[in-house]
């Protein structure tokens, strides 16, 4: 399994920056959105497991004062898996929480996106809407927070212009 697992990293695949981005979008998506995207695929690929979904932890690190030396804040649950499509592409899923199906779907889309022929359509039909949905959730929270921003004004007293 070790040798085949390293395939999941991909060798001659897309530039890391592109894959980095879509993997991050897939990890932060909601499970319901991913299921919908999966159901929306006309040709659902078959795949074999390279690594069955496995629940574990990642130690979350932070920096003293936000900018200084590192320390261990605490752990978070993470689910990972790896699989290979019948067409040969290997996909990897690393997602927060105990979320086997989420990791599986993230890995399938990661594999599909490595197929240069399918990528443009998937970027447009899956990744862009998932990223937009995440941005919309963030924007909603941010606008509600912004409504609680204090507008200080100074009361001028003791002046008598009239």
């Amino acid at each position: 399994m070790g040798a085949s697992l390293s395939e999941a990293g991909g060798q001659a695949g897309p530039a890391p920056a592109a894959r980095q981005r879509w993997m991050s979008v897939l990890a932060k998506a909601r499970l319901g959105e991913l299921e919908e995207a999966w159901q929306g695929l006309d040709d659902k690929p078959a795949y074999d497991w390279l690594r069955l979904p496995e629940i574990g932890m990642v130690m979350v690190r932070a920096r003293t004062g936000g900018t200084g030396g590192q320390f261990n804040l605490g752990q978070m649950t993470v689910t990972r898996c790896a699989l290979r499509l019948a067409s040969g592409e290997a996909g990897l899923g690393y997602v927060q929480g105990r979320a086997k199906r989420h990791a599986e779907l993230a890995a399938v889309f990661d594999a599909l996106l490595q197929d240069a022929a399918r990528r443009p359509v998937l970027e447009q039909d899956v990744i862009a809407p998932l990223a937009a949905a995440h941005a919309a959730r963030r924007d909603d929270r941010s606008r509600k927070a912004n409504a609680t921003k204090v507008n200080f004004f100074t009361l001028v007293r003791g002046e008598n212009d009239q």
Binding site: S6, G9, M23, A27, V78, L92, Y94
Partner: peptide, 15 residues
Amino acid sequence: FVPEELGFAIEIGEI
């Protein structure tokens, strides 16, 4: 997080 299989960092979630 940098998965051992990848060698570059991806976002795995938000806390």
